[in-house]
Design a protein around this nucleic acid. Structure first.
Lengths: 190, 190
DNA sequence: ACCTGAACACCGTTCAAGT
DNA sequence: ACCTGAACACCGTTCAAGT
């Protein structure tokens, strides 16, 4: 196994742990045990917990965005793109009641190093931009500023639905909220 | 200073700390120092961190609800009640970028004792019920099930707007999202 | 290049001991 | 009744030492 493989293995394991229990709850000793090394060795790959989290968040953003851009390139209609976006959050909940990495890190913001805070902002910014682009197809007459506000609103509403579903440990809460969003026109109809 | 005073002082201080930095980041030693005792003494009032958090969450719910019910009793119109509800979340952000206690505990759910998880669910349930009651005045023809879904959606959307505003450290994000919610009719117009 | 044990100051918790 | 210091097993981090 190469260096890169091991590093990636640590990242993958850590991502799941943070999404499941949060940044503060992530233990280097648990993480090390999960990949079969000692906690001191994790520092060989990532000098600090902040470095690990920043890398984690950066990759998460890139992969999330690659998936979303893939949908657009495949020619998926704009309204189905929005639903696919929401679907990612739903799928995350189904796996051990996990949260969006950007969401849980946002909640823990004051405990994060500046570099990690910056990655959270990058995540939000890039996904809002993607939503803007997709939304623009459905609402061609809308002004850029209003478009951006609506993209943000859709994003926030979905994050909030996920947060409340996690808090109650019940995916139905997420589904109910999203159905109401569709009824009212915040999300396109099914 | 009586026992009750000291206990309340601990609770008040702990509440602010959890809203600012989260449950996992709350340190008994920091908390003890803030109220002028040693960390071991905090355990005299609250045997475990879970006991403290559960009491915290219970009081938070009660106080939040008392404020909201006060609005209704004063005869504040239903749409202004909803805006006042949202206003609490905005005000929380303005104080050191704090979060709703129910929201941040929801994010940290897997790290919470069962009694604390139950308090988070109580918080959500009681506030949703209050929103249902207020919303019913504005939409008298709406069926109970749909009413509840919409109350949940409003709650989730506001929590999400707060989460994203916290993540970016910018209240304008909260304001933008809420403006979009109003535009689309999820929240009543201003 | 990659890993380790031991040490450091932290954490929640317990408990015997103080007043 | 209320508080304490000391101990326990944890935490992230550092570092000299191993291969």
């Amino acid at each position: 196994m190469t260096n890169k493989d091991k590093k990636q293995e640590i990242l993958t394991m850590a991502r799941g742990m943070v999404q499941a229990r949060g940044y503060n709850a992530l233990s280097f000793r648990d993480l090390a045990a999960a990949v079969g090394i000692k906690s001191a060795s994790v520092h060989y790959y990532f000098p600090t917990k902040g470095d690990l989290a920043a890398t984690l968040a950066h990759e998460y953003t890139d992969e999330f965005l690659a998936y979303l851009n893939g949908l657009v390139e495949e020619g998926v209609p704009w309204d189905q793109c929005i639903h696919a976006f929401a679907g990612v959050f739903r799928k995350t909940l189904l796996r051990e009641n996990r949260m969006c990495l950007g969401g849980i890190l946002a909640a823990e913001r004051p405990d994060l190093d500046l570099e990690v805070q910056a990655e959270v902002e990058r995540f939000t910014e890039l996904l809002v931009q993607w939503l803007c682009g997709v939304l623009a197809k459905g609402k061609p007459k809308m002004k850029p500023k209003e478009l951006r506000r609506q993209a943000l609103a859709i994003f926030a509403a979905i994050e909030g639905a996920q947060l409340m579903a996690r808090g109650s440990g019940d995916v139905a809460v997420f589904d109910d909220a999203l159905e109401a969003y569709s009824d009212i026109g915040l999300l396109p109809p099914n």
